[in-house]
């Protein structure tokens, strides 16, 4: 599905990602873990097209997409969320979600004015989908709130909601669980599982919550100091001596066992 080939990126003198290669298999939920500063988010930004790699290629379904702009990758079905939740702060939650689906008839001034019937029918269909997503994420009560006023956790859910509004092939989730309460975290986990099995979405998830990773992800890729340390099932990764060393002092050696 996605092949990350020998990707490197340096910012000034800092090498954030160094000769990093791995595949995200079609239909998989790939976990991406590693200590802080391992280059996970930078790698996500490179895959999604927000940051150009210094070296290396990104291949989607056999097509080299390294040169494509982020919006072009989006239209190829590659969707990302942000670690620090991003929102259109001056629009309502509902508008934030309605903005996502591509190919709406309201595109031209002509249709907006003269084909109101068609546009509103479509708007209605999208609005229903928004209601569904809001309901699913239990944020219906803030639907008409300006997104800038939401709490961190709620913004996180809007991020996830955005990926549910489009027919994505691959979704890159950057710490979907951070700042979200336990009950909701379970819902998110279930949502990812359902989108994966029922709709065939491929996921790649950065997460520090090892329970979530253990429950969802196979395989798990471990990054440290900008490069891939190892990959395999959660059990294999847990048993890996290098992984323990990379996390040592980060408290993960205990965390993995737990």
């Amino acid at each position: 599905m996605i092949r990350i080939e020998n990707v490197s990126k340096s910012f000034g003198g800092i090498q954030a990602v160094h000769a990093c290669s791995f595949d995200i298999e079609k239909g998989s939920v790939t976990g991406l873990i590693g200590p802080n500063g391992a280059g996970k988010t930078t790698l996500f930004s490179i895959v999604a097209g927000f940051v150009a790699p210094t070296e290396g290629r990104i291949v989607l379904d056999g097509e080299d997409i390294t040169q494509l702009a982020p919006h072009e990758r989006f239209h190829k079905g590659l969707v990302r969320t942000f670690q620090i939740p991003q929102e259109f702060s001056r629009m309502t939650v509902r508008e934030n979600l309605m903005l996502v689906p591509a190919g709406q008839s309201g595109e031209s001034l002509f249709s907006a004015w003269f084909r109101r019937g068609r546009v509103s029918a479509e708007d209605k269909r999208i609005a229903e989908k928004v209601d569904e997503v809001l309901d699913f994420l239990e944020i219906t009560h803030v639907a008409d709130e300006v997104a800038g006023n939401l709490s961190g956790g709620q913004k996180k859910l809007v991020e996830l909601g955005r990926t549910m509004m489009t027919d994505a092939k691959v979704v890159l989730l950057d710490e979907p669980g951070a700042g979200v309460n336990r009950t909701l975290l379970k819902k998110i986990t279930d949502a990812v599982q359902r989108l994966n099995t029922e709709r065939g979405y491929t996921f790649c998830i950065i997460e520090h919550d090892m329970d979530l990773i253990a429950k969802l992800c196979d395989p798990v890729v471990v990054m440290a100091q900008g490069t891939v340390l190892t990959q395999g099932t959660m059990d294999q990764v847990k048993a890996d001596q290098q992984v323990r060393e990379a996390y040592l002092g980060g408290g993960m050696s205990g965390g993995v066992e737990a």
Binding site: H71, Q86, F88
Partner: peptide, 15 residues
């Protein structure tokens, strides 16, 4: 309007 609000997110939404 989306782009004037948040450039990065607009790109992530396929704009």
């Amino acid at each position: 309007r989306a782009m004037s609000d948040n450039v990065d997110l607009a790109a992530a939404c396929g704009i």
